[in-house]
Nucleic acid binder design. Structure first.
Lengths: 337, 337
DNA sequence: TTGTAAGCGTTATCAC
DNA sequence: GTGATAACGCTTACAA
């Protein structure tokens, strides 16, 4: 009963180990009869495959590696959950690795590849520069999740992302259409984070298009994606005396920190200042006021990322760069002026 | 240069594979000369041991398994992050497995043990019944995190937890001391979750001690640990017409859902109803109003859990059951009556 | 459709 | 001190 092997299965079912292995791996060229008999033996013996032996033979760990950049952004939390639940449907174990928002995700992935020998990699959040200088050391399929990698010259790299620039522009457009002309932006680090840079550019696009006065020095503050950083950045923006009537945060977590900072300065949302977030966290609809936000299709992003990765891994499919839709939700944290 | 094996090392150094293996594992009975020569060969060849082969031979995978029960409770998210960062300091890979709040975590762990052959297990959230009936199948060290396992008769089981009953009682005491007499409770499932049951009992303890009228049928609603469930439960409690002036939620995520539900019924927090949470999520201090809560020492819980587990694994240390401190924080979501 | 047998890279038990 | 060599449990040619 304990620790049955495929040899036991072979004995129990009356077939050879090769046939047993075929059944276990859902391979063709096995009679229905054999399949049934062997599956029954599996049941009876409580057989569990020995991953170590399998991996030794296959020269790989059979696992999928996920590198998550930045631990305080809830958005990645829900992305990881979705990825986990997709991967759970397969037989691949998931290795999750969290690194700091400012660390080099590619170098980290390179190291983990040597160490863990995964069959594929998912990288959540990334910086083009890091890819340019080090990604050539990675030879297995990789999907960059939530960042666009279509400009990167690697044939084993795919990406699934939201069009950050356009989405940020839409958010700003919405604020402007509501009558706001003085808008502050709490964004990401434009150097370390592509996401931060693109969303910032989306803001500029919108301002330019609408002839809005935007002073990068005074109206923008680029920080990390966390509650606390959103809070701090907002405090700094308030000190610049630009009397903004709206604030766009490049992540819901920042928006939440921002709302608290505004409140602490005696301002109410949305009466004094409208706040717009980005990500569409489930949490946002339970806040008071409900957070206006740009919703990323987290679920879709996770599903497609895993699909593409496994396709590249299994069928040697070709890598692709996809974009998932976003949706602007005007809720209670924004108001007309 | 690529993929050297100990055979290559043997050839390169002029020794046999057995001696190479001894050197690699720092075993005695090897001459200094041999050790030096072989280490040099390791350098030159860029040798990396093949973990899969090693594990196959040793019948274990060197990894630490974490089973997380319930995916929508942010509290576990931050616990997992802390555990990850602790384990990252060691050489053990971490395998994280998420299961539904209502699934049997022990059976799941048993299966994963057979499959992945980890050296130790961390289980986040648990149900005594499940342990009683199936834990005897687990032979390796295990730490139950955030639940008390001191009544469980297994010598390979440790636990690190908050005293849920006492902590919940403190929260209720605080509300009562503020003048509240009619208090509703949004709790966890008393059957599937020990945590749910203990926090509920803590509430009863407090009510009993203060001579408070508590009607389990009408003043309590036990659901899952999520925003939405907290919301729904609160709506149901409101329909019972008990006109409560305070609400205690057995988790911050539920409290957040509760606050939204109250708001949607035209009630404000804390003016009409005071809300007390449980967990001490970082998020809570950025909400408006800041959430009053019982803070669990998440960081300490993670650190001790990992320490105890590794101690049991490595030094064959003996298992223990520890409690970490909690702290009651009265913030803005509660008020005197 | 099925079985036999040769590895995968280690560790460990023997002899020497 | 050291070196053959037999496992560990699996996948996969190659034969049948």
């Amino acid at each position: 009963m304990e620790a049955a092997t495929i040899k036991d299965l072979a004995k129990l079912s009356g077939y050879g180990v090769a046939t047993v292995s075929r059944v276990l791996n859902n391979q063709p060229n096995v009679s229905e009869k054999a399949r049934k008999k062997i599956m029954k033996a599996v049941e009876e013996s409580g057989f569990e495959i020995n991953d170590n032996a399998k991996r030794l033979k296959q020269q790989s760990s059979n696992s999928v590696l996920v590198v998550v950049k930045g631990t305080s952004n809830e958005m990645f939390g829900s992305l990881v959950e979705n990825i986990q639940s997709e991967i759970a449907k397969t037989e691949y174990p998931l290795l999750v690795d969290y690194i700091d928002e400012d660390d080099n995700e590619v170098l980290r992935a390179v190291r983990l590849c040597r160490e863990k020998k995964p069959i594929g990699i998912l990288i959540l959040g990334g910086n083009t520069g890091h890819f340019l200088s080090d990604f050539d050391k990675i030879k297995i399929p990789c999907v960059l999740v939530s960042n666009d990698g279509s400009n990167l010259p690697f044939k084993n790299l795919s990406s699934v992302s939201t069009d950050d620039r356009k989405a940020a522009k839409c958010a700003m457009d919405t604020l402007i259409e509501m009558g706001h002309r003085r808008i502050a932006v709490v964004g990401g680090d434009r150097e370390h984070s592509d996401t931060g840079r693109l969303r910032f550019e989306g803001c500029l696009d919108s301002c330019r298009e609408h002839g809005i006065d935007f002073d990068v020095e005074k109206d923008f503050c680029g920080v990390r994606f966390s509650y606390q950083d959103g809070y701090d950045a907002t405090c700094r923006l308030l000190e610049n005396n630009r009397n903004f009537t709206a604030l766009f945060a490049a992540a819901d977590v920042m928006a939440i920190g921002a709302i608290r900072a505004l409140k602490d300065h005696g301002l109410s949302v949305p009466e004094d200042v409208s706040v717009f977030g980005f990500d569409g966290l489930a949490l946002g609809s339970f806040l008071v006021p409900k957070l206006s936000t740009v919703e990323q299709s987290v679920r879709k992003m996770a599903v497609r990322s895993v699909e593409i990765l496994l396709d590249c891994v299994k069928k040697k499919g070709t890598s692709r760069h996809e974009t998932v839709p976003f949706a602007v939700h005007q809720k209670e944290s924004t108001g007309k002026i």
